[in-house]
Design a protein around this nucleic acid. Structure first.
Lengths: 144, 144
DNA sequence: TATTGTTATACTCTATAACTATA
DNA sequence: TATAGTTATAGAGTATAACAATA
């Protein structure tokens, strides 16, 4: 059941992705959105990836104009990574399109079922998050 | 909310993946499980991929002993693809480990919330599936 | 000497184009 | 000629190992 739900959600979201950007690149944008000025090493850790792979990912994102690299004023070995205006706009747009697609489904559901779903999902998230060791819950109360 | 739920589910499932097999390779195994003896071209279509990519995917899966290629008796151009015993066992094992991880979360949820979640998910799937043009719903009544 | 980031190299996955074998 | 599958080639994503610059 849950499997089916996730697979369907992927299809629903797929309808919203005009994105030439890959899933890996998207994850970088997401991290940068919440941790502006993060250095490459920390970004690699956040992605559970390695510095070389992450460096190459950033090469492509920079070439595409979504992110910017800046030298750190404190430690000249470090690189500070920033989301560009274009990158930020791209993220916002993608997110709004995804939520629109999701709302399309939610709107067609009987109200009682919709309420049950959200209530169940909240409990699921709370329980799952509690089982995952020290994963700072990405606090924020999105509605969709 | 839904976004958070899906991301958490991925973490939960990640705990169950001892798999050296990639997501692409897994999709091949899933298709073969339900369409034994499918030919390469049809498999590529099912994956929304191309014959060359799919051929290479099969090369690696065959080398790993998960699938088998057999010449079609009817048309000697065609290749019949089959899941090997090992491939079938691998899938069953992965699935049971994933469901176990999922049950771990469900078991910790208050009963009322669990019921609300399943009820909501069923309605969500029904609604989403109805919105997707001619996607034969993978009938089957899994519990988790 | 330790740390930050990069380059070198290799493997998987993806795609398009060219090729082989069969129909 | 049309179709099934493969090989050729190229780009993205991933990893480890070797390297440069800085601390």
């Amino acid at each position: 059941m849950t499997t089916t739900a996730v697979e369907l959600l992927e299809v629903v979201w797929g309808r919203a992705s005009t994105a030439p950007t890959s899933a890996s690149q998207l994850r970088v944008l997401h991290v940068l959105e919440h941790h502006d000025g993060i250095n490459l090493r920390t970004l690699a850790e956040s992605l559970a990836s390695t510095p070389p792979s992450t460096s190459r990912l950033c090469d492509r994102l920079q070439a595409a104009g979504f992110i910017e690299r800046a030298a750190s004023p404190e430690d000249r070995r470090e690189v500070r990574l920033h989301l560009s205006g274009r990158g930020r706009a791209f993220l916002a747009d993608l997110r709004s399109r995804r939520e629109a697609e999701l709302r399309k489904v939610l709107a067609d559901m009987p109200a009682a079922k919709r309420i049950a779903l959200l209530e169940g999902l909240e409990a699921f998230c709370a329980t799952a998050a509690a089982q995952i060791p020290d994963d700072a819950p990405e606090s924020g109360s999105r509605t969709a």
